[in-house]
């Protein structure tokens, strides 16, 4: 059995590396680069009003893909909740955290929340956006969850936030369908002044929605894994 495994591994590695060196050489000049990326780069600033080209690809050019990705994340969170179904009884806390840890975590949480909000709101201007911002907010929740003994984690509020965020994503897309462009996730709002916070049409709205959804989902995933019995 072990021989078969190592043979498979070796064969796979050789095939992979041969393909890699044969076809996937990184070009040194931009002349021989993939034309899709060049096209998107030259059009994204004028078409979407977003300074960050990655954001315009994630939210608008491949927005349908992002919708599917959020659905996959929702299914994963649903699966974790089903497996880690809580029976209501609290697990007993064995560890007694120190005063400094508790106070420090309470001090840290608003700062992390604010930083996550900043990352979400500036997703179309600087690196960041809904996914990392939502994750940072979830991490802030988790710092509180780890250190304090009794936590008022409202699961219902999290589910409602998550569902509303998902619905608003689809709603924003459908509004674009009704507009003049007649396509899903059409950018129907005015683009505004380039490189300012209130610009780029629906991109900040969609990223805010994605941030809320990702933050609520991931914090309920971590809560379910930690607290259920």
């Amino acid at each position: 059995m072990r021989k078969v495994i190592s043979f498979l591994l070796l064969a796979g590695f050789v095939f992979y590396f041969a393909t890699l060196t044969g076809g996937l050489i990184i070009p040194d000049s931009s002349a021989d680069r993939n034309s899709v990326g060049l096209d998107i780069l030259s059009r994204s600033a004028g078409e979407t009003g977003s300074a960050n080209a990655v954001t315009s690809v994630v939210v608008l050019y491949r927005g349908f893909d992002t919708l599917g990705e959020v659905t996959v994340l929702f299914l994963a969170a649903l699966g974790v909740s089903v497996f880690m179904k809580s029976t209501g009884e609290k697990r007993k806390k064995v560890l007694d955290q120190s005063f400094i840890l508790k106070t420090g975590s309470r001090l840290l949480f608003p700062l992390m929340f604010l930083f996550g909000m900043y990352i979400i709101a500036h997703g179309h201007l600087s690196p960041g956006g809904g996914f990392p911002g939502g994750v940072i907010i979830a991490t802030g929740f988790f710092v509180i969850l780890l250190t304090s003994e009794s936590v008022n984690f409202n699961k219902t509020l999290m589910s409602v936030l998550e569902g509303l965020a998902g619905l608003s994503f689809i709603g924003l897309g459908v509004v674009g369908l009704l507009g003049p462009g007649n396509s899903f996730l059409q950018n129907f709002l005015p683009l505004g002044e380039f490189n300012t916070v209130f610009s780029a049409g629906i991109i900040p709205l969609i990223y805010a929605v994605v941030g809320i959804k990702v933050g609520a989902e991931l914090s309920s995933v971590v809560y379910a894994m930690k607290e259920s019995k």
Partner: peptide, 20 residues
Amino acid sequence: DVAITEAAIGAALTTVVFVI
């Protein structure tokens, strides 16, 4: 963009979930 996401997820949340 990818760097900030990888740092937030790979270094923080994944570790937390594995430790749990």
